[in-house]
Simulated scan of single mutants.
Amino acid sequence: MILAADLTLALRLADAADSVSMSRFDTDDLDVRAKPDATFVTEADLAAERAIRNILTAERPDDGVLGEEYGTTGTTRRQWIIDPIDGTHNYLKGIPMWATLIALAVDGVPQVGVVSQPAIGRRWWGATGLGAWTNTSGGEPRRIRVSAVDDVARSSVSFQSIAQWDAAGHLDDLVRLSRAVWRDRGYGDAWPYMLLAEGRLEFVAEYDVAEYDIAAHVPIITEAGGRMTSFDGEPTITARSSLATNGILHDAFLSLLHAPATSREEDR
């Protein structure tokens, strides 16, 4: 199967990126620069993406690439989507919750995904028809599955950040969500999506996200039995929002978050 070969390559790409990023993690002389959008980029972000692109140029010269740091090159029919360090602000502060995100999208649909968090020794991967997996302490792969929780009131959710929801105009929705569920926390960036795929959370959502922020999560969550859409319920990675669930509760969460104004007033 061609996706099996692509997944094997994606895991090698993650190895290359992790080697670069870990060599500069938590160092005193890390070069950090501000981007025009006031976010930051480090020398490790740039070097990790270059390492990935170099391998793709050699082994998949006909495929396109979309990367956070170096933009888009080549075709979009088969396109590798890369975030060399998702959680750069954590990375530059020496906080180990950051990840390398690698996806392969075919005709705009992510089919292969790898999420690697080398600073905590964790990795997750999946591909359409091949299941979703993570590594174990003994080094053996373990297949993962979303939870079977079927009641919003018993669900555990991650909302990323209050400021993010506020800026998107959905702060009231976040408050209503927090009142409806069992537990809410902001675990941040890639990790909560993988906790969802492992069956430890039932809902993750965020705003102001680009394709490279979320593409790698889609095959992993889908193959684990979950569902991932935009905030409006569309199966796309280009809507600048994402909503991932265990699948069972997806429609219930959409209804909760899009409740009519009258219902919102009653919640107060």
Rank of each mutant, 00 (worst) to 15 (best):
P118G: 01
S137M: 07
I162H: 04
W124D: 08
W165M: 06
E202N: 09
W124H: 14
S178D: 08
V146M: 09
A127L: 14
S137I: 08
A99R: 09
A119W: 05
G199T: 10
S155V: 00
D173E: 15
L174Q: 03
I81W: 15
E198R: 15
I85N: 07
M97T: 07
G94Y: 04
T134V: 11
A148V: 04
D107L: 05
G113E: 14
S156F: 06
I102F: 08
V181L: 13
V114Y: 10
I162C: 00
Q160F: 08
W124Q: 08
P110I: 13
I82Q: 13
T100W: 05
D172R: 14
L201F: 10
L174H: 03
V106M: 12
Q117F: 00
G94S: 02
I95S: 09
L104K: 09
S147H: 02
G131D: 01
I102R: 10
Q79K: 15
P118E: 05
D83C: 08
R176I: 13
P192K: 03
W165P: 08
D172K: 09
D107T: 07
P141N: 11
A105L: 09
D166V: 03
D107P: 03
D189H: 01
T100E: 08
G108E: 09
R123K: 15
T136F: 12
T128D: 06
G131Y: 05
D83E: 09
A168Y: 04
Y91Q: 00
L130G: 08
V109I: 15
G188Y: 10
A167I: 08
T100C: 14
T100A: 11
R185S: 11
Q117Y: 00
K93M: 00
D172E: 15
L171F: 15
L196S: 14
V112E: 10
S158M: 12
Q164K: 00
S161H: 11
G169I: 01
K93Y: 00
H89T: 11
S161F: 02
Y91A: 02
Q111L: 00
Q164M: 08
I120H: 05
V149S: 05
V175N: 03
T88V: 01
D150L: 06
M194A: 02
N90M: 06
G131E: 04
S161G: 06
D150P: 11
V181I: 14
V149E: 15
S116Q: 06
L201N: 03
T100Y: 08
P96A: 10
R122N: 01
W191M: 07
L196T: 11
G188Q: 07
L171I: 15
A153Y: 06
A163M: 13
L174G: 01
